[in-house]
Simulated scan of single mutants.
Amino acid sequence: MDLRQLEYFVAVAEERNFTRAAERVHISQSGVSAQIRALERELGATLIDRSTRTATLTVAGKAALEHARAALAATGALAQAVGEVTGLMRGQVTVGMVVGCTVTPLFDALASFHRAHPGVELSLSENNSDTLLDAVRAGTIDLALVGTATSPAGLDMLTLVSERLVATVPAGHRLATLDPITLRDVCSEPLVCMPPGTGLRTVFDNCCTAKGLAPTPEIQAGAADAIADLARRGLGVAILSESMAADYPDLVSRTIDDADAPALLALVWRDANRPAVRQLLNHCRRAFTPSAGS
């Protein structure tokens, strides 16, 4: 029994098809089939039912699958641990980031990590915060920069930014001089907001619900630039965070007095035991808190 046989077995079990499994492991279908038959002969049991077009696991195959995955994971962890010690870290880290959020310290962290560990392949994926959180929980993304209203269940979190919601309007708008501005004032106007599933929208909706309000935004956009431009053109009051609004000095931004819950920008992860993930987290901490590296 060798690790290639276990890898091919797991690929067929997960793909449920010999052709797709062969494409996944980059060898011929006949090679995959031969290696799995050799594994079955060694174990003395049939693992894959080949009687239909879909490759399904036998009872023995189901019993073997968990152990095969564990053996492959242990081998990967061994290679990573040795790589960390020798400075030759290998593998892949997938990083998620909220759509339309250009966060320079994150890019600095990715660049410094790449220089320190060029053998690790970095992959960056953009999506809304709810989707990214689900992906981190599922293990398809290792580390994500998300907007959130609270600490997400089942994940570790490092808060990078905590700030209030603001209403952003052109200088001539009635809210530009109203003092104070409340959620009821804001909700009486057409609104331009982030879409559901984003951290900023979740915070806004939660604050409104707490006050018995149920606004329906006129327009939704996924990027702060688009939201600000729509507000600039008089299409609605933009709901942004303080740091987002600071990028648009031609607009007036007013803190919403009774929107008490802060909008959080945070790094989230599920498993920092992998050396590459742990090292990337260290680079992120240094990038977002420069004094920590001095």
Rank of each mutant, 00 (worst) to 15 (best):
V120L: 12
N128K: 15
V103F: 08
F113C: 01
H114N: 08
S125A: 13
S112A: 06
H114L: 02
S123E: 14
R115K: 05
H117N: 11
G100M: 00
D108T: 02
T102K: 15
G119H: 13
L110Q: 03
E121K: 09
F113N: 03
S123Q: 14
H117E: 10
L110H: 08
T102W: 13
L122I: 04
T102R: 15
D108I: 00
P105E: 05
E121L: 08
L110G: 04
V99F: 10
R115V: 02
H114V: 00
C101H: 15
R115A: 02
A116M: 05
N127M: 14
A111G: 06
S123A: 12
H117Y: 10
V103D: 02
T102G: 14
L124I: 03
C101Y: 15
N127Y: 11
E126C: 00
A116S: 11
L122W: 06
P118S: 10
E126R: 06
D108P: 03
T104E: 14
L124H: 05
S125R: 14
S123V: 11
S125Y: 14
V99Q: 15
V103L: 06
D108K: 00
V99R: 14
P105F: 04
S129I: 03
S123T: 13
S112N: 06
R115M: 02
A109S: 06
A116F: 00
H117F: 08
G119F: 10
A116N: 07
L110K: 11
S125M: 13
T102P: 13
S125N: 15
N127T: 10
P105G: 04
A109E: 03
P118W: 07
F107S: 07
A111K: 07
D108W: 01
E121M: 08
L110E: 01
N128D: 14
A109T: 01
L110Y: 01
P118T: 06
L124S: 04
S125G: 12
V99H: 13
V103P: 09
T102F: 11
F107P: 13
L122A: 04
F113R: 02
V120A: 12
S123C: 13
S129R: 07
H114I: 00
A109W: 00
V120C: 12
N128C: 10
V120I: 09
H117G: 10
F113G: 01
L110D: 03
E126K: 05
S129E: 09
D108F: 00
E126N: 03
G119P: 14
F107D: 04
A109L: 02
N127H: 15
H117P: 07
E121V: 08
P118A: 08
T102I: 10
S125I: 13
N127I: 07
A111M: 04
G119E: 11
F113Y: 04
T104S: 15
V99L: 11
D108H: 00
A116I: 00
V99C: 11
F107Q: 09
N128V: 08
V103Q: 09
D108Y: 01
G100I: 03
V99D: 07
T102Y: 13
H114C: 01
R115Q: 08
G119M: 10
G100F: 04
C101P: 13
S112G: 02
V120D: 14
R115I: 00
P118R: 09
G100N: 03
G100Q: 05
L124R: 09
P118C: 09
S125D: 14
